[in-house]
Nucleic acid binder design. Structure first.
Lengths: 248, 248
DNA sequence: CGCCTTCTTGAGGGGCGTCAAGCCCAGTGG
DNA sequence: CCACTGGGCTTGACGCCCCTCAAGAAGGCG
């Protein structure tokens, strides 16, 4: 099962660093041919970013864009008095960074330890002009993020605390998906963030998150292996906990 | 001040219907040259859609895309038991419709009376391939919608009822903006939707919306002219009501 | 005028926030 | 090896904000 070389007709043209890249075909790089990849890779850097570090500091702010190779990145907004709301989570192989300027007041942080492959803004924008499919891929990712944001607006505005927590667990379960999970209905979830982050994601407090994890456990929807790992015996059961019919 | 003809060097090439179009330069059409506009306009239709009608019915679902010429369009999500959340509002000259497939479970309705200029899906997608700037414009609008959705997530998750209502009024004030409002700090807002819609937008109930409009009136932040019109004497005052510092 | 829809206002209750105490566990140093 | 410490998490007690239920006011329209 030599996954690393599938589909590369002219492997000689593909940069060595890219040949070994886990997300090479799925990320935005999938839109580029060997020659373009070669040019891009001349300017790329791999970074390991440890948990809780901001991605926007250290000169890498709007200067560099990046692909997530592993880990989870969180986007959040902060109010003057300290209230905080997480407005997006990104997983490999998502693209991080904002084409065409400003990301008004959004903080980008590593939720877990993260590995990224970054490159200068100008390099990507140069490639965008010559390769329309690149812009199309970015456009599609933006549309996907918009869908997720809207799904989350429904959760924030109209679900109660228990449904919110179940929704979060379901989201993580379906995203961190380590290639397996096909056909299986049970899954062990490694929570990528601590209770405080989950609270900021759900528009709740730490205590309410904790109480409702306990509630789901007592109802038998989940098993709490340890504070960072949850076992779900039946994903459908979890899914139905994300929106109980309250009208009866 | 002949606004209608500004900037058209070769007006002869521009379709007559487009020459009179109020949003011709600002919408996605701004990316097209005369010849392309001519081709597009062969397939466009103007529609007047009256208040509360769905835009996705009558064969105009994924078949046709549209530009909003006037009025307000609302996007909403509905849960099985009737709970509803409005996840987006669109104003002229926004583009309505989803490039590349499915708009998973989103209902598109006219919030007010609306006029649109619509065209078949294939026509637009054909033009997108030959004119990259068209895709770029759509991409930029998607990014703007994403920003707005995230701003709204902060409102839904972390603001109290009074701040939510103030945020809604401020949003409308800064969007419906009838060309004027430059330099002035007061504005009369014509609310584009009824209390129930506002509640669905804010994740509140009708009663709470009503109570907090009253509250803002009694605090002198707004004047309620009639149930559909609000006068704001000082926009800055309204803005500061959108996020009072609760930490002291 | 009567009817219907929309909006406002009040009274009461519940869900989630606030405050506080205690548990679990990893890290540190004696 | 164990006491100490500190961060993260859980659990309880209590209170407030917003929802629920209900009645009435204000328009709009035949």
């Amino acid at each position: 099962m030599n996954n690393s070389q599938r589909k590369d007709i002219h492997n000689s043209e593909v940069p060595v660093v890219c040949q070994a890249c886990e997300v090479r075909h799925r990320g935005v790089c999938g839109a580029l041919n060997g020659e373009q990849l070669m040019r891009l890779s001349k300017h790329t850097k791999r970074h390991a970013i440890s948990h809780a570090a901001e991605l926007t500091t250290g000169g890498r702010s709007a200067e560099r864009y990046a692909n997530i190779m592993s880990g989870v990145v969180k986007l959040s907004k902060l109010m003057a008095d300290g209230r905080q709301q997480i407005v997006g989570l990104q997983f490999a192989p998502d693209f991080v960074g904002r084409p065409f300027a400003n990301a008004d007041g959004i903080t980008v942080e590593a939720a877990t330890d993260v590995r990224v492959c970054s490159f200068p803004r100008e390099t990507l924008e140069g490639l965008m002009e010559e390769e329309p499919e690149l812009e199309q891929r970015l456009h599609r990712q933006t549309l996907r993020e918009l869908d997720e944001a809207r799904e989350w607006m429904l959760t924030l505005g109209r679900k109660n605390a228990e449904e919110k927590v179940a929704s979060f667990l379901y989201l993580i379960a379906t995203h961190v998906d380590p290639e397996g999970q096909n056909g299986t209905t049970d899954i062990t979830i490694d929570l990528p963030m601590k209770r405080g982050d989950i609270a900021d994601f759900l528009g709740l407090t730490i205590e309410t998150v904790s109480r409702n994890i306990t509630k789901l456990r007592k109802r038998g929807v989940i098993d709490v292996v340890d504070r960072r790992t949850v076992f779900v015996a039946d994903l459908h059961r979890l899914h139905s906990a994300t929106s109980q019919d309250l009208s009866r």
